[in-house]
Amino acid sequence: MTGLPLNIDFQQILLHLFNFTILFGALYILLYKPVRDFMAKRTEYYADMDSKAEEALHEAESSKEVYAEKVRTFDEETRAEKAKMNQEVAAQRDRQLAQAKEDAEKIVSDARVEANREKEEIIASAQREITDMVTGAMEKLTLEQSASDAFDQFLDAAEAE
């Protein structure tokens, strides 16, 4: 079609349109769609990976919290156990100290009793010995005074046997 300004030709416009439509279709099927689909697939792949990582991180954080709680509980238990043990040790120590004190007192009192007894025994023994000595001396004196009497008595006794 001629007669339009600038040589505008509807037939050629339609031919351009036809040409471009074919190009559009071919580019869409051969290039645009496959590349876009691949990009979408990759985005999905990385989004999936990201969500999995997020999930794993979340799980790790919750596990961390659980373990931290366990550690806290364990610490508290250990502290309580330690305190209890300390108390027991202290009680045991007190008991042993008391026992030792008691034993020591008993040993001291026993020793004191024993010493008193031995002292008394020694005194009694000394007294006996003194008495014996005195008696012996007296007897000796007595014997010396009557030696002849004694000799006679001896002979009498021997004869009597």
């Binding site: 040409n19 471009f20 074919i22 190009l23 071919a26 580019l27 051969l30 290039l31 496959p34």
Partner: peptide, 12 residues
């Protein structure tokens, strides 16, 4: 258009 279609085909 021909060049572009051939290029797109090769890429595909």
């Amino acid at each position: 258009s021909g060049i572009m279609i051939v290029f797109a085909l090769i890429c595909r």
